[in-house]
Amino acid sequence: MKQLKLAYTSLLAKHGMGAALFVAISVTLWVVVFITLPQLSMLDYSFRFNLPADQIGTEADHYTLEQYHSFFFNSDGSFNALDITILIRTLIAALIVTMIDVLICYPIAYILAHGAKGVAARLMVIGLIIPYWINEILRAFAFRVLFGSTGVVNTWGMQMGLWDAPVDFIRADVALYCGLAYAYILLMVFPMYNAIEALDHTQVEAARDMGAPLWRVHWRVVLPMAKPGIVSGATMVFMLTAGALAAPQILGGPSSLWFTQLIYQWFNESSNWPRGSAYAVVLLVTCISFVLLMMRVFKVSVGEIGK
């Protein structure tokens, strides 16, 4: 608190009353009204019954664990394997997508930082950014066009004789994984690139000069340098993938739901807001704990993210 006040006085001295007030009010508004209060409110809601509007605030409206209880258990007391499986599958799928992105982005980040020069490098940067400007929905749609039963992949595959009946890539979740991996490539490449770029290229040359094979140069010299970038990118990709809604809705097979879709159903189809809130809290807590765990494992701090 004292330090906050100190920062405010220093702002005041440097930029004047108007600017200091502007900063103080905006940041307070952001932190309190936009970030904290909604989360608290959602948390509060998740501990309530789903009541009709006229009963809210009455005797019946008291705190309960029922929403969380019904995430873990069915009404007959058996384990709610369905929802828990969906959560676990979502997390695993997000992890797989993240790893795919790490694998395909690392070489590009390295080439961009230390291989490509001049026009080629610029073209690559533009090329990376342009797909990101296309609407998320349309990007997912592109994969639907690609992987539909009369899509290019099926047509070519069959023409080349690789398979002879259309493969249902949508049902097999191939389209979904590809679409998700595609969607967040940029968020993986740039943090990696920033980290690798800081590496002095002569170090790579020196290591090569000493006779180290390329893989060892990467393992011993480049990768340690890239680590904060990889963790930062992986965190973002993981969180966004686990929290994705559009791509699973568009590309997901009819039989495999994403956890966010479950939340969506509680809200928009069953109109059970407290249940939806509880599920949202479950998702949030699981994702954040998972990321914090990974950061602990890889010894990287939150401050690295977004750099």
């Binding site: 932190v31 970030i35 209060l37 909604p38 686990a242 929290g243 966010t260 969506y264 949202a280 993210i305």
Partner: peptide, 21 residues
Amino acid sequence: TVLILPILIPGVVLGISTIVL
């Protein structure tokens, strides 16, 4: 950390918490 968190929090959570509040 606090300010960057909303980028990482799943969008559905932000949406839900907003309408609930």
